[in-house]
Nucleic acid binder design. Structure first.
Lengths: 341, 341
DNA sequence: CACCATTATGACACCGGTGTCATGGATAAA
DNA sequence: TTTATCCATGACACCGGTGTCATAATGGTG
């Protein structure tokens, strides 16, 4: 036998038609039990596997989902944001559980990625994952919608279709951070992240934080804010610039753990003690967070659940079912970076 | 226009045959330049994408690689070994650079995974990734070889085919660890990992470590060794058991960073100072390593290069080219866990 | 025994491309 | 003018399955 075995080979050995082989292998009730057994045995002996290309071509579906990862535009080539790596892991698991394969691909925001995977029938649907300047994406979302491409995305708001987004309750997370500071009388707060509308996630965290402070008659001084993207370097530099400008504060909320870690480095360098002088809270609860010195208090996003919801919602869309807007509850994880020692 | 556009649609609008459309889109030199331009324009207007299933079916190749991740059998459902996550990231990048898609899948060691992806024509080749009890895998490797499946694997030795393995020079890494201890007169060494043959990687690290000590007339006491798999928990418990048995040492080489991190926790708990009482070296240089307290000295594996080599070698195999055995040089990263303060 | 329902199977078109061969027209060489 | 050569294109089989329809065999019923 040269080359891979086909259903015709099995048909030949089993003394039945190829049609019957195909039916037998797919457990069609139309086929006799003995015939099926014989077919299965021969299939096993020949190490036969259904050719997915042929099968997908005929059925017009692929049992495959595509995951498109958008990188922070400025991020280092070699390192991937650990939060997204964690998401990638949980999405992979969720796909496997649902019997779907997962195609993974990195994309730069500018690339002409939209719909490529689904239009080419490589995947039945698309999961979009990435922080970043989502405003750029809106036209592409529109194009996806116009072509009736099935997709869900993490964090970003798709105009008029909130149901397509799976998202952590970033506003609630920001509120929890504020409450934690307030409970400890840390009311001279700083925020590091992106308080503009560019990143809807960071913005929501900021909004929740600010609003909850305001609800307790605390004003977040605009001078005590600095922009940063989600890297350690960026957090470090943003914090340094605050310190260099003699901005003081006793509590710091960072829009992500990486930013927080960079901030702690900058604070330490300046001789500012964490948490005694400044309490720090991050966001995400990446694996590193529990190993920093001091261990990082953070708002956890449940990536396992997030991955499951993304996959579950996408599959619903593919099946034409109704999808509900999904907000995942974050939870405060208190560690050493925010409580007096 | 309902449904996706096909090459026939384009042919219709362009007033040429479908054959010509297909040729034009693939930049065949047989087609007139003006015709090609017209075809491309219409294709763009119709948002046409080549159906990968049809194309793959005909050409019998998929421009896709499959990555099979084998989990530590005892590892926690939710967390994936960060070293492999990092590999996953670099492999994804390397695939993208080569114009290949990547199918990612988790597998348990027992599952009947072998050759599934390639036989079904979903992928042109397979990358196998995982620590674990590779002895179990050998028959499956044989079956892959027998079926002429194209695959490469990380770390594991495939009998008689060392060229199919891409691997860090674990022996050399173990030697570097030994040298680092020796240079500081830390000669009362312990090893935590798996010194049996089950994990060829851990075993090689152990062998290199032991041999280099021996070359310097230092004997590694067998009582100062404990088995562990690559998790923080396992490292913690292994170290605790050593301590509980009143085993003393002033240097500890852990077969992976996670083990080292668990070991440090156990040591701290027992009131043993790192590095003053015990110097610790890990292996991998995962992202967490630089944030532990103290920061972890470790033997770095270059995951970016590893991912590139895995992909490059696999593509060579697919193209029928000769593949060379690949050993990647590790490098010692000295941090606070191994040097006196 | 005639009639219809049920069951198991085969024949065949089809999915949407790709590769091969045939064909027609233009141009160059004889 | 005729023949050879080249170029651009069309027709068609093919990849390996799946879905539909037709058909043969079986069994139960009146």
């Amino acid at each position: 036998m040269k080359g891979k075995a086909t259903s015709f080979d099995i048909a030949h050995y089993a003394g039945v038609s190829q049609s019957t082989v195909s039916r037998a292998l797919r457990n069609s009730p139309l086929v006799n039990e003995e015939t099926r057994k014989r077919v299965f045995e021969i299939a096993k002996k020949l190490n036969y596997k259904v050719d997915k290309n042929a099968s997908n071509l005929r059925t017009q579906q692929s049992s495959t989902l595509a995951l498109l990862l958008f990188e922070d535009p400025t991020s280092d080539e070699s390192q991937i944001n650990p939060f997204f790596l964690s998401m990638l892991g949980s999405i992979t698991r969720a796909c496997a559980k649902e019997g779907y394969d997962l195609l993974v691909s990195f994309q730069s925001a500018s690339a002409d990625w939209h719909a490529d995977y689904e239009d080419s029938h490589r995947a039945d649907g698309i999961i979009l994952l990435g922080y970043g300047d989502y405003i750029d994406y809106q036209p592409k979302f529109d194009s996806l919608l116009a072509q009736n491409t099935k997709f869900v995305c993490w964090g970003a708001n798709v105009d008029n279709r909130p149901d397509l987004t799976v998202c952590c309750d970033n506003v609630g997370g920001g509120q929890q951070a504020a409450n934690h500071f307030i409970a400890q009388n840390r009311t001279d707060c700083a925020f590091i992240g992106d308080a503009s509308h560019h990143s809807p996630e960071f913005f929501a965290r900021f909004q929740g934080f600010k609003a909850q402070l305001a609800a307790n008659n605390i004003t977040l001084n605009e001078r005590k804010m600095a922009n940063a993207i989600s890297t350690e370097e960026s957090g470090y530099h943003a914090t340094r610039s605050l310190i260099a400008n003699n901005i003081t504060f006793n509590a710091l909320f960072a829009a992500s753990d990486l930013i927080a870690i960079g901030a702690i480095r900058a604070l330490k360098e300046a001789g500012i003690h964490v948490p005694n002088d400044v309490a720090v809270i991050g966001f995400d609860n990446i694996a590193i967070a529990s190993y920093t010195n001091p261990p990082l208090t953070t708002i956890e996003q449940n990536t396992t659940l997030a991955g499951q919801m993304l996959v579950a919602n996408l599959l619903k869309l593919i099946r034409g079912e109704h999808v509900q807007s999904t907000l995942l509850p974050p939870s405060l994880i208190v560690r050493g970076s925010s409580v007096h020692v």
